[in-house]
């Protein structure tokens, strides 16, 4: 419990800064750009009327969807998802590379608690951080959704948009935990987090470009892609399954490593 409390105290500032940054980013997009987007609806509709319908379907261009609140939210999620991934990596590194960076692993591991207890306390602290974000983000989206008098496209579909960044975070949290445990040293947290996010972004872009269906499993930034929700009203279940496997397996490996691996003591 002490470890949990200590981590939470250390992370409080970080969670708040990140959550507020992401929420402000969302509001900036929804308040500033969504109305501007809506203004061009009629003009786009006119052009679409001249397009052959088959082509519109092939390109997934549907006015109804494109100009819905969720359509714009889905578009915003490209940025929100990127920032969420960065936040998750940053939090996981702060938690799991803390002793490595400060060279005080021996201090922590000579306390009268088992390594399993330390791991669980740290892991739960991380999950609490992500949940805090999820609640703040969900409230922001929900509030704005109501304030703009938008209507959902599918039943409960707004829920998926609220959950998407949080679930993406879980995946990246696990990845970064593995990285923190396996790497020899973590130089800077901000630097590693940016590198992670950019790497994932380029990977997603590449998968998108190559247009091979089986490649979608290697792009973690898109495991909970909202573009799919926009079309089908729910997440891509094969990707959800992949994410679940990655999370469970990754956590298990981290736990085992943390539990049984020899530590470097400076």
């Amino acid at each position: 419990m002490n470890i949990y409390k200590f981590e939470m105290k250390r992370l409080l500032g970080s969670i708040l800064t990140w959550s507020i940054t992401i929420a402000v980013m969302l509001l900036f997009l929804m308040k500033g750009f969504y109305p501007a987007m809506m203004e061009s609806r009629e003009a786009v509709e006119k052009i679409f009327a001249n397009f052959p319908p088959e082509m519109l379907i092939a390109f997934g261009m549907d006015v109804e969807r494109m100009f819905s609140y969720e359509g714009f939210l889905s578009f915003s999620n490209i940025y929100i998802g990127l920032l969420s991934a960065m936040m998750a990596v940053s939090i996981a590194l702060q938690i799991f590379a803390r002793e490595k960076r400060d060279k005080c692993t021996d201090f922590l591991f000579t306390r009268p608690v088992t390594r399993s207890q330390v791991f669980v306390a740290k892991f739960l602290a991380g999950i609490t951080c992500l949940l805090t974000f999820a609640v703040l983000y969900g409230a922001t989206v929900f509030w704005d959704f109501n304030a703009q008098n938008a209507t959902p496209l599918y039943e409960n579909s707004l829920m998926y948009y609220i959950l998407s960044p949080f679930l993406t975070m879980l995946v990246f949290f696990v990845f970064a935990t593995l990285y923190a445990l396996f790497s020899k040293r973590v130089r800077t947290i901000a630097g590693t987090a940016t590198a992670f996010a950019f790497g994932a972004f380029v990977l997603s872009g590449l998968v998108d470009l190559l247009e091979k269906d089986f490649l979608k499993y290697v792009a973690p930034l898109d495991y909970f892609q909202t573009g799919y929700v926009l079309e089908h009203g729910h997440f891509d279940s094969s990707l959800v399954l992949t994410a679940a496997v990655v999370c469970v397996l990754g956590s298990a490996v981290s736990f085992w490593w943390y539990h049984s691996h020899d530590v470097q003591v400076a």
Binding site: G32, F33, A36, M37, E39, S40, A43, V44, I47, F48, N50, F51, F75
Partner: peptide, 14 residues
């Protein structure tokens, strides 16, 4: 050429 025409209608910020 329609894509360009379509793009021109999108809000600039997008």
């Amino acid at each position: 050429a329609d894509v360009s025409a379509l793009m021109a209608q999108f809000p600039k910020v997008f």
